[in-house]
Computed example of a mutant assay.
Amino acid sequence: MNLSNKKILVTGADGFIGSHLTEELIRQGHNVRAFVLYNSFNSWGWLDESSKEIKSQLNVFSGDIRDPYGVKAAMKGCDVVLHLGALIAIPYSYHSPDTYVDTNIKGTLNLLQAARELEVEKFVHTSTSEVYGTARFVPITEEHPLQGQSPYSASKIGADQMALSFYQSFNTPVTIIRPFNTYGPRQSARAIIPTIISQIASGKTTIKVGALHPTRDFNYVMDTVRGFIAMAESDNVMGEVVNIGSNYEVSIGNTIQLIADVMGKSISIELDEQRIRPEKSEVERLWADNKKAKELLGWEPNYAGIEGLERGLRETAEWFVKPENLGKYKADFYNI
């Protein structure tokens, strides 16, 4: 699909990945409607930080994906939907699982219903590597069993299956992108990389962390953004699930040391019990097989392997250490 002359709705455009994706689509000359969560502060989330050139081309819709009427109003006139809007914090899903069902499952259903009724041309639904749970085999292909090891991952499994059911039942043009652990500028400090960087950047030498032994497949945000755009453009992915990952596995402990190295700091580690997941809920191992992305999308990570990870961590740290950015984070508090 050629995205030129197509109107693209991005849900979750105010968030970490969504804001980067919205900006890149606009830089490429596309017509974008940014769906942001309504709030009384009139905040557009991270899009408030966009350049004047980007903001001048933004078509912003403030609403809530839990509202089916607002969702349909937002989608009218759009040809392509990139659905990123979701609750994503795993610890908060232990605290308030009902909100995850409402937002992630019912919110996705609202969007699918509207897409079906309005006959959109492409609907890209965002999944997560958390739906795989602890790897039963590596690297993890799209055929890996799904395991709901947290209320968050269970809600995303439900949303994924709802999306696929609309493809199977109604031929709604759905495809599912499944990013592994995306990181980069603007990410919430609830995630491991920004929580370490923000603590170090705030002058701390004793860093509070959770479990060190689990492994992850970290994907720099601009690689993830390229994956979304490739999914929107591809004619080969209807009804398919596609992993977007670096195909490089690294432990949390080694990642923390890499961060300290690229920031030129010597640190010590302090275990913080509140950051530890319940034992059976911890996803012990994630490692993406990205062959399908290469075959169907021609996508490969630009930030690949240890060299790519170090480069991505350096660029992320350079953003965080700027006072105007670091000031938006509360390094002294654990954010669930």
Results as ranks from 00 to 15, higher is better:
Ile207Arg: 07
Thr206Glu: 14
Asp102Ser: 05
Ser251His: 00
Leu82Ile: 09
Ser50His: 02
Asn104Ala: 09
Phe228Cys: 08
Gly184Gln: 09
Pro194Glu: 09
Gly29Tyr: 08
Ser96Trp: 13
Leu9Val: 03
Tyr69Met: 08
Arg226Cys: 10
Ala13His: 08
Lys122Asp: 14
Arg116Ser: 01
Met222Glu: 03
Lys294Asn: 02
Met263Pro: 06
Arg311His: 07
Gly133Glu: 00
Asp79Arg: 13
Arg311Val: 03
Asp48Thr: 02
Ser202Arg: 09
Ala89Phe: 12
Lys291Val: 15
Leu82Lys: 08
His30Ile: 02
Ala86Thr: 03
Lys322Thr: 14
Asn325Trp: 06
Arg27Thr: 01
Ala89Asp: 15
Lys106Ile: 14
Asn247Tyr: 03
Gln168Thr: 05
Thr126Ile: 13
Ala191Thr: 00
Gly12Thr: 12
Val60Asn: 13
Arg33Asn: 04
Phe41Ile: 11
Ile259Ala: 14
Gln113Lys: 10
Val242Gln: 02
Gln147Ala: 12
Ala13Cys: 12
Leu25Phe: 01
Val250Pro: 01
Ile244Lys: 06
Gln149Phe: 04
Val131Met: 13
Glu307Arg: 12
Ile192Tyr: 05
Gly210Ser: 12
Ser246Arg: 13
Tyr100Arg: 10
Val138Gln: 02
Lys55Tyr: 06
Leu84Lys: 14
Ser281Trp: 04
Arg116Met: 00
Ile200Thr: 11
Ser251Tyr: 04
Phe180Lys: 10
Asp64Glu: 15
Gly45Cys: 07
Glu273Lys: 11
Asp64Asn: 15
Ile200Ala: 09
Pro173Leu: 10
Ile8Val: 03
Ser4Ile: 07
Asn181Thr: 03
Ile157Pro: 01
Thr22Asn: 15
Leu118Tyr: 05
Asn325Ala: 10
Ser129Phe: 04
Phe228Gly: 07
Ile269Ala: 15
Ser234Lys: 06
Lys7Thr: 14
Ala293Met: 14
Trp299Ile: 09
Glu300Leu: 14
Trp319Arg: 01
Leu25Gly: 01
Leu286Asp: 00
Glu282Asn: 05
Thr224Cys: 13
Val81Trp: 11
Tyr100Pro: 09
Ser165Ala: 15
Ile17Phe: 07
Ile54Met: 01
Ser188Leu: 00
Gln28Gly: 11
Glu233Pro: 11
Asp217Tyr: 10
Gly18Ser: 13
Ile200Ser: 12
Gln199Leu: 01
Lys122Ile: 10
Leu286Tyr: 00
Glu284Trp: 08
Asp98Asn: 14
Thr215Met: 07
Asn243Phe: 13
Ser153Cys: 12
Lys6Gly: 07
Asn110Cys: 00
Gly327Tyr: 00
Gly253Asp: 05
Leu87Met: 12
Tyr183Glu: 06
Ile207Gly: 06
Gln274Asp: 13
Val101Ser: 04
Phe41His: 14
Glu249Gln: 10
Ala74Asp: 05
Glu315Gln: 09
Gly305Gln: 15
Glu295Cys: 09
Asp64Thr: 11
Met222Gln: 04
Val283Leu: 04
Thr108Phe: 02
Trp299Leu: 07
Asn247Pro: 06
Val10Met: 08
Val80Met: 12
Arg314Glu: 03
Ser266His: 04
Leu58Pro: 11
Glu249Ser: 04
